[in-house]
Computed example of a mutant assay.
Amino acid sequence: MDRTFITLTGSSQAALVDRDIAHISRAMRLSLHGDLGGPILPPAYWRQRLYTLLDTGYLSHAQLCSVDSLLLQLDQFAAEPQLAWDTLTPAVAALFPPPYPVDNSRLV
């Protein structure tokens, strides 16, 4: 069976790159902040994704600026000391009192 490759026009390629940049900008920050175990995906993963976009060679000036901004965000994340979860204050069970009186005698 012969393989046929799909070639994309310039506008289709630009739209795919725009969608990829938008996805990375949304997901990268959440992924880097992660959870108690640290980042969900490491900065090296996101850096590789951005370098792959740069290697396509089809980026407009605005797309280059967006990728550069995301790379700078990665550099800033790597430069900042990470929070030590042990030193954070414990969460309070109820931050605000209930707005109405609570009758504990009705609880069974």
Rank of each mutant, 00 (worst) to 15 (best):
S12E: 13
L50H: 00
T56D: 11
A15E: 14
Q48L: 11
I40R: 14
L54W: 14
S11D: 12
Q48S: 13
P39E: 13
A15Q: 14
S31I: 09
H23S: 11
Q48Y: 06
Q48P: 01
L41R: 10
D20R: 10
G10T: 09
L53H: 00
T56F: 04
L32Y: 00
R26V: 09
R49G: 03
L54C: 15
Q13Y: 01
G38K: 05
S11V: 07
A14I: 02
A14S: 14
L53M: 10
R29K: 13
D20S: 14
L16H: 05
M28S: 03
G34W: 05
L54S: 15
P43R: 07
L30A: 14
S11K: 06
Q48E: 13
I40W: 11
I24E: 02
A15W: 07
A27P: 00
I21F: 04
D20T: 15
R49S: 10
G34P: 02
Q48A: 13
A22W: 04
L30P: 03
D18F: 03
D18T: 12
A14T: 11
L53E: 00
L30V: 12
L54D: 15
W46M: 03
V17R: 02
W46Q: 01
A22Q: 09
P42C: 10
H33Q: 11
P43C: 08
Y51L: 12
G10M: 02
L16A: 09
L36R: 09
L32G: 00
I40Q: 13
V17E: 03
R49Q: 12
D18H: 06
P43L: 04
T56Y: 06
Q48W: 05
G34K: 08
Y51H: 15
L53V: 05
Q48T: 11
S31F: 05
T56S: 15
V17P: 00
V17S: 05
R49W: 02
A22R: 06
P42G: 09
P42A: 13
D20E: 15
A27L: 07
P43H: 04
I21S: 01
R29F: 06
M28Y: 02
Q13E: 07
R26Y: 06
A27F: 04
A27E: 09
A27I: 04
L36N: 08
L41V: 08
L41E: 09
T52C: 07
G57W: 08
P43N: 04
Y45T: 04
G10P: 01
L32N: 00
P42V: 08
R49N: 07
P39T: 12
G57K: 08
